[in-house]
Design a protein around this nucleic acid. Structure first.
Length: 148
DNA sequence: GCCAACGTTGGC
DNA sequence: GCCAACGTTGGC
């Protein structure tokens, strides 16, 4: 079972929203993140939910993968802001996964994550990285959970 | 609101 | 294939 970290803007979708219902993690429009969703994220994997672009940025909880990578249906919907006319069901360009809620964590602020040497390899804390879906190693998982 | 860093686009 | 311009991300 692997661990991942997904970013989300809580004004749009937060750990509280996930706690209410499963969600399709759609709208990822970055190729590196897409490759993880399409090729590597597996059912049963756990996902640290990170709140970005808000007052308290940091890890807010954990979700669980219920459905592994499948073509992002929003890319096919002309009325969706995530529509991409270069993606089609025969040759999908973008992928989504489905998540369920596992639990909240007491917010682990970005500053604290940055200050933890065990997490220095995580793209989240690296300057300039905008990766929104990233793997979390076993050592990083332990380091994060040890901060709770 | 600012701005640095990044990814994408498009002209050549 | 290069690279400048542009739009987006995301912390502060």
């Amino acid at each position: 079972m692997a661990y991942w970290l997904f970013k989300t803007e809580p004004d749009t979708f937060s750990i509280d929203d996930l706690a209410r219902a499963n969600t399709l993690w759609e709208g990822v429009r970055n190729y590196q993140a897409r490759n993880f969703l399409r090729d590597e994220v597996q059912v049963g994997d756990r996902v640290f939910i990170y709140h970005s672009s808000c007052k308290q940025v940091g890890i807010a909880g954990i979700g669980k993968v219920e459905r592994a990578g499948f073509p992002d249906p929003f890319a096919f919907d002309p009325t969706s802001p995530y529509f991409d006319d270069k993606s089609n069901p025969e040759q999908p360009r973008w992928y989504a996964v489905e998540l369920s809620y596992e639990r909240h964590l007491p917010l682990l602020p970005l500053a604290a994550l940055k200050a933890n040497p065990a997490l220095s390899g995580l793209p989240l804390v690296q300057k300039g990285s905008r990766l929104s879906v990233m793997p979390v190693s076993e050592a990083e998982r332990q380091a994060i959970l040890a901060m709770v």
